[in-house]
């Protein structure tokens, strides 16, 4: 399913910064990334060519100091079951979020965090309180 909130790629790093706005500005200026949307200062999505990165506020997202990788999948429920049976540590179980995604977060045996995300509604950032940027 398509969700306008999500970028056209499958894998995207989710990077934690002390403050989102200065980080977004710096990444766009220094590396040429293009802002896709921003959510009230706690999260933003940037286009990097045909890929994307997500910038989050460590304090607001509760993942202080730990970056993660987001991966879009077709069926997050089945994905969760398989990961659980293979011993993934589930940090947050599958849940539906207002930006049109069903997600769960798990830690792999190497201590890396992964968020798997399935689109369940086609929403523009404005529909859930975000602000579209030039990359939208």
């Amino acid at each position: 399913m398509k969700n306008r909130t999500m970028p056209p790629c499958t894998v995207m790093p989710v990077l934690v910064y002390p403050q989102v706005r200065p980080a977004v500005d710096w990444l766009c200026n220094a590396f040429g990334f293009v802002e896709r949307w921003e959510a009230k200062g706690h999260r933003a999505q940037l286009l990097v060519g045909s890929g994307a990165v997500v910038v989050v506020d460590g304090k607001a997202s509760g993942t202080c100091g730990a970056h993660s990788i987001m991966v879009r999948v077709d069926n997050v429920i089945a994905h969760h079951g398989r990961a659980l049976l293979w011993g993934a540590r589930i940090l947050s179980p599958p849940a539906d979020y207002p930006y049109g995604e069903r997600q769960y977060t798990a830690e792999d045996p190497g201590g890396h965090r992964w968020t798997f995300s399935q689109s369940i509604a086609d929403l523009a950032p404005e529909e859930w309180g975000g602000t579209s940027g030039p990359g939208m």
């Binding site: 429920i77 969760h80 079951g81 659980l84 049976l85 589930i90 179980p93 599958p94």
Partner: peptide, 9 residues
């Protein structure tokens, strides 16, 4: 969890 299709933790 089971009714939602999840393997229970």
């Amino acid at each position: 969890e089971a009714e939602r299709g999840l393997i229970p933790e």
